[in-house]
Amino acid sequence: DMPHRFKVHNYMSPTFCDHCGSLLWGLVKQGLKCEDCGMNVHHKCREKVANLCGI
């Protein structure tokens, strides 16, 4: 059981939050991507995600 390793990410195409399902808005640093499993989340959704990475 490992925690997610979220890192700020710049998305080049429209991407949706894997937690709430809404679009990650903006041009740069729109959200966070787990370096291990690739989960994408809003900055505000980070604390709502279970801290178990499903690598």
Rank of each mutant, 00 (worst) to 15 (best):
F16R: 10
F6R: 02
A50F: 11
N51F: 04
A50H: 05
C34N: 01
K33M: 13
L32G: 11
K7S: 14
V49L: 11
L52I: 10
L32V: 14
V49K: 08
M2D: 04
H19F: 10
I55D: 11
C17H: 00
F6P: 04
H4D: 05
G26S: 02
L24D: 02
K44T: 08
G54N: 12
E47F: 07
H19T: 13
F16W: 14
Q30D: 03
H4M: 04
W25C: 02
H43Y: 09
G54I: 13
E47W: 15
G21D: 15
H9C: 09
L23A: 05
G31C: 01
V41N: 07
M2K: 05
C20F: 00
T15H: 15
G21R: 15
G21C: 15
K29P: 03
I55R: 11
N40Q: 05
P3N: 15
G26H: 01
S13P: 03
G31V: 01
V28Q: 07
S13E: 05
M2F: 13
E47T: 12
H43S: 09
P14T: 06
V28I: 13
V28R: 07
C34S: 00
L23N: 03
H9I: 13
G21V: 06
V49C: 04
K7M: 06
F16A: 09
T15Q: 14
V8S: 03
H19A: 12
S13D: 03
G38K: 13
H4L: 02
K29V: 07
L23S: 03
F6H: 15
L27T: 03
L24A: 07
R46I: 10
V28H: 08
D18W: 15
E47V: 12
K44M: 05
M12K: 06
V28E: 05
T15Y: 07
M39N: 08
R46Y: 05
T15R: 11
K48A: 12
G31D: 02
F16K: 14
P3C: 15
H42I: 00
K7A: 05
K33L: 12
I55Y: 04
C53L: 13
Y11M: 04
L32R: 13
Y11G: 02
H43G: 11
D18H: 08
K48Q: 14
R46W: 09
Q30G: 02
L32P: 03
G21P: 11
C53A: 13
M12V: 10
W25E: 15
D18M: 05
V41M: 10
L32S: 12
K29S: 11
C37H: 02
F6N: 07
R46N: 07
F16C: 08
W25L: 10
I55N: 07
S22T: 12
N10R: 03
M39Q: 11
D36P: 10
H9F: 15
C53Y: 11
G38W: 14
S13R: 09
H42Q: 06
C20Y: 00
P14N: 03
G31N: 02
L27M: 08
Y11H: 04
H42P: 00
Y11E: 01
V49T: 07
L27D: 04
C53H: 15
S22K: 11
E35N: 11
L24K: 03
D36F: 05
C34D: 02
A50P: 07
N10V: 03
V49R: 12
W25S: 04
P14Q: 03
